[in-house]
Design a protein around this nucleic acid. Structure first.
Lengths: 189, 189
DNA sequence: GTCTATAACACGATAGAC
DNA sequence: GTCTATCGTGTTATAGAC
């Protein structure tokens, strides 16, 4: 573990609390107590509660949008791309379980960056849908409603943060493989 | 539509607001404004903000636990039972989209009934898992990790409330059928 | 960089007039 | 059954001593 600045420590602790109770229910006093300091002292490291949320959410949302772009432009066939998308989610959810909770549940509390977040999410979903549609066109994937396929896959992948902490014995590769089996065999033609 | 009491109207409006911002971020003043009255007047119909949350969540949680018990004790084979579970989720999520949001996202803010809620949820998941395990034992279902199968199905079914409002053209039967195709064909042996 | 003290305001809930 | 007024407390954030 590389050295962690005080600011990073605060953000990590905040994400943990946000996962348990949600952004709105966590007070700066809660966060300060968890950090072993007084609420006023937090403001020497961060400018506002809102800034913490922004840092947590935007960085992950950018990781996803960037990640799926690389996959989309790769050489794999479309089923292979979907497997890589599963791996991307497993990897991010494993490395940042707490942040994923905020991304899923607290994005609507973003004040200055809500439009930017929504544009990232829309871009991500559009690319995901393109992979599925191209897979149907090339007869790799069953001709089921592509939006229902995406909804099924994304619901599972977005819920990983709830489930990974309960299954610490399972490593990331095994999990990604099992999910590929279940999620992809059902749509494989 | 049968006549709706003022209390039911308040609860329905609250559930709608809770879906948009979460329980903690919705104030009694927000709720009163949405109802076209003053915050103090709400207390002639409900005793507290907490009571509203309790009514929303517990009633749905009981519907699920009761529903899966009936399915588990029915005569169908295990794949048929899983199809019925999918129908149960589609039906409840269609009839109570707003309440499903609170059930998923705000259960941790229950104060007096948290233990009861958790016992209902544990009972539900245990029965769900039993259906899957018995389906594997009877060779109806692939011998994949049964918890991963349940996780995949439940993640999708618990997210339905997010997705149903965007697809009003799709009726409940078509949706349940498409989901069965995607979720069950992947595990069908 | 952390503290105490406090500003400025929002919160859930109640009292009592109409 | 709805209102105005308000209580007591909790909230984010700042000021200034150390």
């Amino acid at each position: 573990m590389i050295q962690q600045t005080r600011k990073e420590e605060i953000i990590k602790t905040a994400a943990k609390l946000f996962k348990e109770k949600g952004y709105s229910a966590v007070t700066m006093r809660d966060l300060a107590t968890a950090m072993g300091m007084k609420a006023a002292s937090l403001y020497n490291h961060i400018s506002s509660k809102q800034e913490i949320l922004k840092i947590i959410i935007i960085s992950i949302a950018e990781d996803f949008t960037q990640g799926i772009d690389v996959i989309y432009n790769s050489e794999s066939n479309n089923l292979g791309k979907l497997s890589q998308v599963i791996e991307l989610h497993v990897k991010i959810a494993t490395n940042n379980t707490y942040g994923m909770a905020s991304l899923n549940n607290d994005w609507m509390h973003l004040e200055g960056q809500l439009d930017y977040y929504l544009s990232l999410r829309n871009k991500y979903e559009a690319t995901f849908l393109n992979i599925i549609k191209e897979g149907i066109a090339s007869s790799e994937i069953k001709a089921v409603n592509p939006e229902i396929i995406m909804f099924t896959m994304l619901s599972t992948l977005r819920s990983l943060f709830l489930w990974i902490p309960k299954k610490e014995d399972l490593n990331a590769n095994d999990l990604a493989n099992s999910l590929s089996r279940i999620l992809i065999q059902g749509i494989n033609k």
